Amino acid sequence: MKSEFIKMALVLGLLSCVGPFAIDMYLPAMPAMADDYDVPVAMSQYTLVSFFIAFGICQLFYGPAADMFGRKPPLYFGLTLFLFASLGCALAPTIEWLIGLRFVQGIGAAAVMSIPRAIIRDRYTGTEATRLMTTVMLVVSVSPMLAPLVGSLLMAPFGWPAVFYAVALATVFSLLLIYFVLPETLPVVDRVPVKVSAMRDALNVLVRDPHFIGMTLIGGMGMASFFSFLSIAAFLYTDYYGLTPTEFSFAFALNALGFFVASQFAANLCERFAGVAVVKWAVSGFALSAVVNLLLNFAGIDNFGVLVGLLLVGNAFLGLVVPTTMVLSLDDHGPIAGTAAAVGGTLQMMLGAAAIGIASAVFDGKPLTLVAAIGACGVIALLICIVTLRPSPQTQVTT
């Protein structure tokens, strides 16, 4: 069981890296991309927005498809589309072509966002599911720590298109993993009939479940804060604070390190204190660190070390929030885990895309935009947590 657990964690982690790899690896290239195409900064940021919109919406199709046809066929389709779109991005003649191809890339990448969650739910629930989810995130965390550095190293001799060729090569490896290593976890007998009504019924169950919606939105605000960082960090760190692309990669990796380290304690904390309690305390910590960062900026304290330090703390709390809310949102929806994971992923990606759009539109080259966006995400997440996890009247009476 232990060897199977480790194998599943490695395979699902590597598959789940594909989408983040396509984002994190080319972040250092965004300023150079804007220069090469001779377009404003906002135009290069739209390559993120278009990716996330497709990445979010298309999970609604992959989730039900995974419940109807099994987990592996939609993965083959999505990654093949992602492979050809990545090659197209490397050859894009204009920024408009790149934005469009990033949208197609997002359509393909959506497959590896929701389906691995459903595969986890096929095999495990409760603490074991949280343990596997955090182990998968251990693998995924390598992406934001190493991908920007790899991207900056590739850029130096070969230019930014080399980033997309590297992503295409990683996609080929992922397809081989699915074919030779990943088992099909949804037996034919358990598959949902290929009916529109089945998808409609599953959606009705999910949208009427306040616990599912609440957990999804809490995790989504954490995602939105990170996506705000993605859209601004490369320009803020290099233009405002004067970091080189390589130095930016290390600073970016430091933020990811907080998430990575904390996520490894999520399962043990959930086992000891229960998942709901972990979410309450972790969301409170995330909101507090975000608000402190904002207040310090308002007070005129503009120090790179302080900014990065508080972002590190906030990401550490998110390392507890994100995997735990993912598991809690799916616990009661085993028969429709694919659809539930897709709906949850779509909502979270749409929040992320909206955060990128808003942050990019108001970004003036200074850190206030970043800390204000993350502060807003933290406060909203805390408010949703209070509403979603408040004791029910029956519990209060019993107590």
Rank of each mutant, 00 (worst) to 15 (best):
M1V: 10
A9E: 00
L10C: 05
G13M: 00
L14E: 00
L14T: 07
M25Y: 00
M33D: 00
M33S: 01
D36V: 00
P40H: 01
A42W: 02
S50I: 00
F52Y: 04
G56R: 01
C58M: 05
F61K: 03
F69W: 06
G70T: 04
P73Q: 01
L75N: 00
Y76K: 00
Y76G: 04
T80S: 14
L83F: 15
L83E: 09
A85R: 11
A85E: 11
S86V: 06
L87C: 12
A90C: 04
I99T: 10
L101R: 11
R102D: 02
V104A: 09
I107A: 03
A111K: 13
P116Y: 07
A118V: 08
I120T: 14
D122G: 07
R131A: 15
S141T: 04
S152G: 01
M155P: 07
A156R: 15
A156K: 14
V167M: 05
A170F: 13
S174L: 11
Y179Q: 09
D190I: 08
R191Q: 12
K195Q: 15
V196W: 13
S197K: 15
D201G: 13
N204C: 12
L206V: 11
R208T: 12
I213N: 13
G214F: 10
T216N: 05
G219Q: 09
G222M: 05
L230T: 13
I232Y: 07
A234G: 13
T244L: 02
P245L: 06
E247W: 10
F252D: 10
G258W: 12
F259Q: 14
F259Y: 15
F259A: 05
A262Y: 15
Q264F: 06
N268D: 14
N268P: 07
A287T: 02
A290H: 07
G300M: 02
G300D: 07
L312I: 10
G319A: 09
T324C: 10
M326R: 03
M326I: 12
L328F: 14
D332F: 13
G334C: 08
I336K: 08
A337M: 07
G338T: 08
A340C: 05
G344H: 11
G352Q: 09
I356M: 14
G357D: 03
I358S: 07
V362H: 08
P367K: 06
G378P: 11
L383W: 08
I384H: 13
C385E: 09
T388Y: 09
P393G: 09
